[in-house]
Every structure is written in C-alpha cells, then in structure tokens.
Design a protein around this nucleic acid. Structure first.
Length: 959
DNA sequence: ATCCTCCCCTAC
DNA sequence: TAAGGTAGGGGAGGAT
C-alpha cells in the first residue's frame, strides 16, 4: 500500500480529532477572552513531533499571544518547531524554517520577537545531509559529526534505553561498520544502492519501491477521489454519532435573524434543497496565503510555470509530433470533447509543459483556460498566467471546515465531493421560520470566515434545480429556483451539456439528432429520445429538461467497488519488476478493502499497453502516451479480503495476459461484488461454510477440493480466461514453487491429516477465511509437511515454541523461496524457546538511524511516519530498536493509553505485512513486540488487548 | 423477460 | 519534466 497512513488519507478518525481541535482553536481565536498579547501576530508554527514545551503548550502559547498554530505543515507555515527529525525526513525538506521550541519560550521571556536564526536546527551548507545546529549552547559536546542526531530538546528527559542513550555514537559507529563490512552479500549491497538512489532523487518509475506512495502523494485525481469518498464516510459518521440530537447553532441563529428575514410558513409540501460548492476550490485554497494575487489569472499545477513551462526537456525516445498525430487519429471520433480537441489543436509540439491544470481562477477561465488543460497550452492563451502549487493538506482542512460548518445546522447532507454537497434545508427552514436565502447567506458567510474561501450555493425544489441554481450563482453568489419559478421557461435555453450526466459524448450524440438545448428536448417525445440514447437515459433527459428530478438525497452512501490504479510512471524492464509492483498495488487495494470492512468476490486487472504505433516514450514525462486498454477479471468462489489471495490472482491475470512488461504503461486493480466483512458475521458465516464442507465431505468421500488459488481451483467461472492446468502455469508459479510442493507434500500427507480431512486437500481461499482456531488446528496437523517441502526446513519437526495463542496463516506464496535464503541468515540461537528468548540472546550491537526519531516520537502524533520510516528503511529489524519500542509501549501501558497501543500495533502490523524482504525477521520482531506488550498489559491490567490484526507466518512459526 | 459482464461515460 | 484516480450509472449484447 502507499503510505496512506502517513499522508493520513486512510485515517478519518485522526482527522476527526484534528478537526475538533481545529474548531476549538478557531472558537478560541474568535471569542478571544484569553488573549494576552499580540506578540506572535503573523507568525504561524507547525510542531513536528515531541518538543519541550509540548505541542499542546506551544499551541496554547500561540493562541494566547496572537499567533497561529497549524495542525499540518503548509506552504505558508512560518516555522516548523521540532526537537529533531530523522534525517531521511529532513533530506528532502527545506530546513530553513525548522527551529527549536526554545525560540517561542525565549520570545515570550523577552516579550519581543527575536531573530530566529540562532534557533535553526539545521543549516544546509555544502553537504547534502542537513546538520544540526546547536544554537542554544546546550549539549554541544554531544554533537555527532556525521549524522543529524539532535539532542537539545530531549536532554531533559530521562533516557529510555540506558545503554543506547549512553553509548549512542559508539553504536552508530558500529552500525556504519556493520553496514560497510556487511556479510549480507549482494542483497544488502543492492538495497544500499537502492536506498541511496531513492534519497538522491524522488521515485521516478514504478520500479522504485517508494514510487507508489510518492505518486499518490502528488496525484490530484487520487486526492479528489479519496477526499470525496472520505467525506461521504464522514457524513455517515457524523450522522451515526449524532443520534437525532438537536442543533444548538440553530437557536443561536434564531435570535440573530431579524424580523424581515423571518417569513411565513410556506406550502408544507415544498422541499428546499441546497447545493453548495466552493468556487474553483484548489485556487481559492491556494490564494488564502497570497491574497495579493486575487484577481489574477491563476492555475494550480505541478509545473512551475513561466520559462520552466516553455522549455521542458524532452525524452530522446519521445516523438511529440508522431504521438500527437496518433492521438488525433485515435480520438478523431471524439473530438467533440473540448479539452481533448484543444489538446489536439494546440498540439504538444515544441518544448511546452504537458503538466495539467487542476483548477484555474475565473480570470484565467476568461482567457479560455480550462481545468485539465496543459500548462504549455494555457500559457499560449495567457502568457501572464500565474501557476501555484498544490496544497493537499489545505484542501482537506478547508473541506472539513466546510462540512463542519454545515453540520452544525443539519445532518441532512449528501456529500458529492470534498467541496460540494446537497443539503435538505426543508426542516431547518420550517423550524426556524426563516427565509431560506437569508439562511444560505448566513451560512456562506460563515464558511468564508472559517475557510477564507468563497463558495456558491443554489436552492431548488430538487437536486437538479439546486445544481442549476448554483451554476447561475457562481462565482461567489447564491440563487433560488423557488416553488414559484417558471421552471420550464428557466430550463429552456439551457445547453444540454449543462445537465448533470451529459458530457461531451452524450452532447455530441444529441447534437447529431438535432438536440442542443433543453427547449429542443422539451419538444421531443420520450420515444424519439429513446431511439437516440438508451431507455433510462432518455427518461432522465426527458424529465431533467423540464426541471424534474425525483432522486432523493442519499445521506449514507455505501461503497460498491474498490480499486487502485496507476497509469503514470509505469516503466518495467523485466517480469520481476512488474511482479514487485503488482504485489505493492495488490497490498494497496487490499488495504483499501479492509479499511472499509468489506470483502470482494470479483478481482479485475486493468492494463494499459503502449499502442503499436506509439513512440516508445510518451511526450508527457512518465506519461502513458497513446495506449490500448485491456481488462481481465475473475470471480472468486468466496469473497475475500486476504492479500495473498488477491495478489495471487492479480499475478496470474497478468501472466495470462502474456504482455511484455516493457510495453506496460498503466496498471489497475479493481475489486467488486463486495460484501460485509464484519467480525461477528465473518466467524459465523465461515464457520457455517466450514461445517458445510465437512458435511459434504462425509457424504462423498472423494470430493474434489483445491489447495491454492489458481485456475483449477475455481470451478464455477472461466470468464474470458483460458483454462490452464497447473503444470502449464506461467513462470510466477515456477519461481514460487508453492503449488507443486504443497501438492506433493499433501499427497504424502500422513494419517493425521487424513483423519481430519478425509481425502480432501484444502482450498486455500476457503482456508484463509476460516476462524482462527480451526486454521490452527488444521495447520498444526499438516504444516510441517507443507513447510518441509516448500521452505527446505524439512528437518525441523519441533512444535510451535511460541505457545498456542498464535494462529497460522500462510506467507505470501512468493515469499517462500525467499524465506529459504533469509530465514537462515537470521541469528537463531539453538535453544531459544521463542522470539523473546531469541532476542535476548542477540546482543544489541547496532543501532538504527531511526532510533532517535522513534524514541522521541512514538508517543507523539507522528508515530506512524516514524514506524513507517523504521520498517521501510531498515533492512532488518534492529534488536535495540525493538527493545526501545517495547520500552515505549510499556510506558504507554503504564499510563493506560490503550488506544495508542492499539493504534501503534495495528499500524506496525500493517507496515510489516507490506514488507517484502526479510519478512520472517520482521514477523518475529512484531511477535516479540506483541508478546511483550500483551505480557505487560496482563501484568498491569490483567487483560490482553484485542488487536485487530496479527502476523502469522508458517515459516517463522516453525522457528 | 431477466440477469450478467464488459465495456463506455461522467463527475469531481 | 510530472504525479493521466476512482466510483457509480447504464447501454449493448450474450447467457440463462
């Protein structure tokens, strides 16, 4: 998965909290009874990690003394307060505003704003590695020469892990030595090279392990989609949390509104539907920090604009002319699509930027610039166009403010996207006896005050009319299409593409039939319309042109599909690179699935392949160029949320496509036919399933069952896939060595397996979904043989040394051969009784670079990125780090912060499951941490924490 | 007739 | 340089 957790998009709970404090802060700032001075006026800070004073204290200080506290770092954040940051983080950061918290304290003490330069934590001269700057003269003796190991803020705290703290530089030296002289052969060397490549440069192609998260971090379309889905969920959460409570803000409003704004009861049956929408959202958010640019043609884009956008480097294998020609041919029949047509007309010749414009201001639109247009193209229309960068955190912040503002008055909200929603105001209007547009004006004003961004709103008697009214209202206005309106007359001149659902294609089709505006359609019979477009579309059109729209508002929307797709930066040179990426993407999409607590029955792979005539390299940097698209899908016998199952099918579908990896330009995984995966239900349903299997087995002693997800397993659907026998399976399975070895071992399976399962083998897909205790029971009786075959540890017959608690799930098939190599490199003392003992036997000789970061941040809000850094940057889990994490968790346990422990364990588990190398070492690390924390909790609280997930791997199980 | 699956289209 | 995603609706046409 991408680092969803790090950029926060997977965690709405976290935002809920952030949002709450945001509101509190705003409230405090607005009411202002505690303001003591304006000392920090115009100064905004963002606190990264654990500091002294703490983030909360700094927030208080800023609020009381007129400053601004940012919950997220944003481009206009003046200072970042930190005690230290891990150097991986700092490496690509502008360090010129990272200062010590002492600055705030000293300003306060001196009652004036001091020069911040002496408080800079890093100075960024010559070396690429930022260095610590000990401006305050504290602890300077501890400066470490080569690494950023800041200590100034944490010196006051008692050391958590004594030996480490005392001997840090020695350990670091050790580490360097170990790395330099590592006996870990080429893998380590290769990994080291990779790491340095990553840190030098941002991840460019999908071959780079950091690519996926980097891409998602920067993709506007991904953010738009994710935020939209997030707010749909947010509305659900708000409604469920509210439980029919009244809205205090309404009463506040009641007393404020003057008499002339109050009106008499309207006809009881009339609905007041409001549609509210931010005006050119991304631009407005961006302009909050640059009000002086208001009124100029502005575009939000990745391109830096200006000269940088008219002289971009062109890849030697790209041929803009040829690609343009092909593009034009391909979309000849689609040139009614204005954006696309403009791209053809404007051409992508010369050296113009092909970066797309996500959002542009009304002034830019006046020059003919449109969203989705290339920057180079836009500059031709308007050379003075100003481009501004994305501010994804800002969009989220503003979107929350918008939703929260509306939610104070009503929860009859249908989320459309992060900046747009429908709201049923009927009961509010009746309750307050207020003129609906007065309320809308009040609401818009409040939104503007809270967000600093303008919005427009329309009100109508249905969703369609509300939308139409918003169109009229924009920009920065409001409009009512009330009960008395001549709707037919109002709609008549409306161009058809203005209607929701009518895009360029449909518009073109209708135009061919002589229909251009609503008046044309109003004159057309339903029958005629049906002959032009489909039945359902005809009816919608027929009604919409008359202003009729019977769709109700949907407050609690349920997801029906989950997908993850990347059509950018896909450049593979061989199968293994492709496979690695598919694994990452499978993990990503599976996480999205489990995040919404669903299982999927259908798995689809979408592939974009370079069109035969297209140039090898696309005109757009890392773009997909002109492509053919191929879809393949497969229906599972049972819904799954198991990453192994999904990955296996994805890999198989790709193999079966037979496409050469170097021609791929885009990859997507789509999961559909979703069902609930609630814990309670899951157990019952699967238990039943298992029982059914058992019954069936008794009935017919030679039932055909299967042991591994591959074509033979799933009998019911072949789809468009060729049926293949296992022996003919493509090479993934050859390299995996799973299927055959499992098969053989089962053939030779001893009596005890037969006793339990008769003649059946096991359908892994079903197996993966069984209740844990059944899986355990099954595995305890058979996995020795399975493992013996597949991993080479055939001589190991010892029972699971860790205790009965663990469950047993197979490792991802592909990890098996790797285990063979790697497990043996992990230092396993002969007589160790379990990971904990094992660990004790391993003397901590090295300390990871991340140590300090972890130590300082595990308690703070940044624990997620810290853990992510640790797991992704370290090749092997360092025992010292494990001890340190244990010690932190132990602290949390003692202070009874179970929620935090829960979060940390959940996150860590997820991270480790994503790990692709040395997996068993990481599995064991997790086990050690898990056992240790449960042990602690048992001692302190006499109970164990029920964690949402755990790691169970048949390989380490045997160690 | 009705359902299913594979697309295409649309929206943000 | 550049970050071309994601979900839902529905039509066409084949399977049942």
């Amino acid at each position: 998965m991408a680092d969803e957790d790090d950029n926060g998009f997977g965690e709405w709970g976290g935002y809920f909290e952030a949002k709450k404090s945001k509101l509190e802060e705003q409230f405090a700032a607005a009411s202002d009874p505690f303001r003591k001075s304006n000392l920090f006026q115009g100064i905004s800070i963002f606190v990264n990690g654990l500091t002294n004073p703490s983030a909360n204290e700094l927030k208080q200080i800023m609020m009381v003394h007129g400053g601004i506290y940012h919950h997220y770092e944003r481009p206009h954040t003046k200072f970042i307060i930190a005690s230290n940051l891990p150097d991986v983080k700092v490496r690509n950061m502008n360090t010129s505003k990272i200062i010590s918290a002492q600055y705030i304290v000293d300003c306060l003490e001196n009652k004036r704003v001091l020069d911040y330069k002496p408080y800079l934590l890093y100075t960024n001269q010559k070396t690429t590695q930022p260095r610590l700057h000990f401006g305050k003269g504290k602890n300077t003796s501890r400066t470490n020469e080569s690494m950023a190991v800041p200590k100034s803020e944490t010196a006051a705290e008692p050391p958590l892990v004594e030996p480490v703290e005392a001997d840090l530089s020695n350990i670091l030296n050790n580490l360097q030595q170990v790395v330099a002289t590592s006996p870990k052969n080429e893998t380590a060397a290769k990994a080291a090279v990779e790491v340095s490549v990553i840190s030098n440069n941002s991840a460019r192609t999908a071959v780079d392990p950091a690519f996926l998260s980097e891409f998602y971090k920067n993709s506007r379309l991904h953010h738009i989609a994710t935020l939209g889905a997030g707010f749909k969920q947010y509305v659900c959460e708000l409604r469920q949390a509210n439980g029919g409570k009244p809205f205090p803000k309404r009463d506040e409003l009641r007393s404020v509104l003057s008499c002339d704004q109050v009106m008499n009861m309207s006809a009881a049956s009339v609905l007041y539907i409001m549609h509210i929408d931010m005006d050119c959202f991304f631009v407005s958010v961006g302009l909050r920090s640059h009000p002086e640019w208001r009124g100029l043609p502005i575009a939000v884009t990745h391109s830096k604009g200006g000269n940088a956008a008219t002289d971009v480097p062109v890849h030697p294998q790209a041929d803009r002319q040829a690609e343009l020609k092909l593009f034009a041919e391909r979309f000849e029949h689609q040139l009614h699509d204005n954006i696309r047509a403009d791209k053809v007309r404007s051409g992508f010749d010369k050296k113009m930027s092909l970066s797309e414009i996500a959002s542009c201001s009304y002034e830019a639109r006046a020059k003919g610039i449109r969203n989705g247009m290339f920057v180079g193209q836009a500059l031709k229309l308007c050379p003075e166009l100003k481009t501004i960068p994305y501010d994804f955190e800002g969009y989220k912040e503003v979107a929350f403010a918008l939703y929260d503002t509306v939610a104070q008055y009503t929860l009859n909200i249908e989320a459309v996207s992060c900046d747009e929603m429908f709201v049923d105001l009927t009961d509010l209007v009746e309750d307050l006896q207020v003129d609906v547009m007065s309320f809308v004006a009040h609401l818009r004003e409040e939104v503007r005050n809270k967000t600093g961004c303008p919005c427009s709103a329309g009100v109508g008697t249905n969703k369609l009319l509300a939308r139409m009214a918003t169109k009229r209202a924009k920009p920065d206005g409001q409009y009512l299409l009330g009960p008395g309106t001549d709707v037919l007359g109002y709609m008549a001149p409306t161009a058809l593409e203005t209607l929701p659902g009518v895009g360029s294609s449909l518009r073109h089709k209708l135009e061919q039939a002589g229909l251009r505006n609503c008046a044309d359609v109003q004159r057309t019979s339903l029958q005629t319309l049906e002959s032009v477009v489909g039945k359902k579309l005809a009816l919608t059109l027929y009604e919409n042109c008359r202003g009729i729209d019977t769709r109700p508002l949907v407050y609690e929307q349920k997801r029906k599909t989950v997908s993850a797709e990347v059509n950018y930066g896909i450049r593979f040179t061989n199968n293994s690179e492709c496979e690695t990426f598919l694994r990452q993407l499978s993990a990503e999409v599976t996480t999205r699935l489990t995040d919404i607590k669903r299982k999927a029955k259908s798995i689809g792979l979408k592939v974009m392949v370079r069109a035969a005539e297209a140039p090898i390299e696309a005109s757009k940097f890392m773009g997909h160029g002109v492509c053919d698209t191929i879809n393949k899908s497969f229906i599972l016998a049972h819904a799954t949320d198991d990453v192994n199952v999904i990955t296996s099918h994805v890999l198989r579908l790709m193999k079966e496509s037979g496409l050469p990896p170097h021609e791929l330009r885009g990859i997507g995984i789509h999961l559909s036919k979703l069902s609930e995966a609630t814990e309670v239900k899951k157990d019952n349903v699967l238990l039943q399933m298992f029982e059914k299997m058992s019954e069936k087995r008794k009935g017919e002693p030679t039932v055909e069952v299967h042991e591994e997800p591959e074509p033979t397993v799933f009998k019911e659907k072949e789809n468009d896939l060729e049926f293949k026998k296992p022996q003919d399976l493509p090479s993934v399975w050859d390299t995996v060595g799973w299927k055959n070895s499992a098969n053989k071992s089962l053939d030779k399976s001893p009596v005890n397996v037969s006793d339990r399962l008769g003649n059946t083998t096991i359908d892994m897909e079903v197996f993966a979904q069984l209740p844990e205790y059944i899986r355990r029971e099954v595995l305890e009786n058979m996995d020795e043989h399975l493992i013996a075959r597949s991993s080479g540890h055939s001589d190991r017959t010892r029972k699971n040394p860790i205790g009965g608690r663990r469950s047993s799930m197979p490792c991802p098939p592909s990890s098996l051969p790797r285990m063979e190599n790697n497990c043996s490199t992990f230092p396993v003392p002969k007589d160790a009784d379990g990971p904990l003992e094992l660990l004790r036997a391993v003397k901590p000789t090295t300390a990871a670079l991340m140590l300090n970061g972890l130590q300082n941040h595990l308690l703070g809000s940044n624990y997620k990125s810290m853990l992510a850094d640790w797991v992704s940057n370290e090749q092997y889990p360092n025992p010292t780090d494990i001890l340190m994490i244990n010690s932190k968790l132990s602290e949390l346990a003692q202070s009874k912060q179970m929620g935090r422990i829960y979060d940390i364990m959940k996150h860590l588990c997820r991270l480790i499951k994503k790990k692709r190398d040395n997996v068993c070492e990481w599995h064991m690390a997790y086990k050690v941490i898990e056992e240790s924390v449960q042990h602690q909790l048992m001692a302190i609280e006499s109970y164990m924490l029920k964690l949402p997930d755990t790691i169970s791997c048949v390989i380490c199980h045997k160690m």
